[in-house]
Write a protein that binds this DNA or RNA. Structure first.
Lengths: 235, 235
DNA sequence: TCCGCTTGTGACCGGGTGGTCATTTTCTAT
DNA sequence: ATAGAAAATGACCACCCGGTCACAAGCGGA
């Protein structure tokens, strides 16, 4: 028995869409365990039995939403991955941050469910998702770094795995802070104003590239501290 | 009516400790909503009514655990904050990472509850906690950075707020990955072997300081354009 | 019009939840 | 020994959950 039963596929597309939208919203707002089938059918104005006829179970419903979301996401993520391969590394990194933020904003429900799946442990498919995402994201970042090293734009002694972990953790937190003022704490990622958000993202990407420390080498480069005081920041 | 009723305070300290331990464990393992008072009293071998006599409600129990945890945590965190103020910035950062990891490992239950509180939204006191932690952690990191700038160890054009956000996000993710192999994905933070974990933490701190990019200054590096076949894979 | 099949329905089930409270047990002071 | 306070108890409550299923409604063809 396939999980989206034929009964559901034969539904009026308009109604089918509403069912999927409302269900995804419920999981996005409440996570898996606390998501309530009763609430979903109540909001949809259909009988509970119908939902179970369509998907067999709460888990079946969620799994269906999951595969749909995967399909919806594939293309835009691939576009991000394939973009700008010829740009220099810092620029690529900056664009990945901006594109990631734009992606999260353009798929708010999917993004929220994803966040919940990674941080809660009661989701079906959680392990599948995490393994797949780690695999994809970390190898992508690793290749980004290795590409940068091949072109001499990234220090050769950087361990690609460590760099990938670093980039991923900052990007993940930045995107999370986007819709959580408490996490953002005034930094600017959760600002209503888009340029402000982009400036904050770009600042993070640039810090990742250039690092925090003042002198890249100990005692060899004496003029490192000489040409400081750039203050070229536009704000 | 205070929440830990006098009845509870008069309990045999041994039993009182078991009640607190078992309750904290339940919240650590299941979060707030899914934590079950029935399970707690079952494991403790006491009647459900007793727990409600002690704390009035599930939320009262949690709030009590929360304030106890806060007290238990204060001193070690202060020790971390005050440590090594005279060391150079990169060393301080490295030590903060190591100390943070050691702290999370030494208070596993409190750490897990904290993680849940920051990532789930059904906790009482969640907002209180987040506001307080942001306040404390971010200003600490900001001062760390500003101190580094004052001593010329951190680039003066780094925005302290951005740097603090960056450090906090990496540290948070690193500590989380410590007890989640799926997040770690083989990087080493979740390794059983302590030196391996410390090496991974130190690598992250060093990357934060030195950055990823190769040449801190513009294109003086002549072989940058000679993007010949690298194939110089040492590994 | 009647049939038969697909689809829709909501009362109902067992189970789990946080919370209550009349009753019993235990302790203490006389 | 006994009266009375304090503490422990667990049956019980209302509520909500995911899931079921006998039945009703809708519909296409004869």
């Amino acid at each position: 028995m396939e999980c989206p039963r034929s009964t559901f596929e034969n539904l009026d597309p308009k109604k089918r869409g509403r069912v999927l939208d409302e269900s995804l919203l419920e999981f996005a707002e409440h996570g898996y365990h606390q998501a309530s089938v009763n609430r979903i059918v109540g909001r949809l104005g259909i009988a509970k039995g119908s939902l179970f006829q369509y998907f067999g179970s709460k888990e079946g419903l969620f799994r269906h939403l999951f595969t749909l979301a995967l399909n919806e996401i594939k293309a835009p993520l691939k576009a991000i991955r394939d973009a700008d391969a010829s740009e220099p590394f810092p620029e690529r990194l900056r664009r990945v941050f901006l594109a990631g933020a734009a992606f999260a904003r353009s798929h708010p429900l999917i993004w929220r469910v994803y966040r919940r799946m990674t941080t809660q442990d009661d989701f079906p498919l959680r392990e599948t998702l995490l393994v797949k995402v780690r695999e994809e994201a970390l190898t992508y970042f690793r290749e980004l770094v290795e590409g940068g090293q091949a072109r001499g734009e990234v220090r050769p002694d950087v361990q690609p795995a460590a760099a990938a972990f670093l980039i991923e953790s900052v990007l993940d937190r930045a995107l999370t802070a986007q819709d959580s003022p408490l996490l953002d704490a005034g930094f600017g990622l959760a600002a209503d104003n888009e340029p402000t958000r982009q400036r904050a993202l770009a600042a993070l990407a640039e810090l990742l590239c250039r690092g925090l420390a003042a002198s890249p080498r100990k005692g060899d480069d004496a003029d490192a501290d000489a040409h400081h005081a750039p203050h070229a920041d536009a704000h």
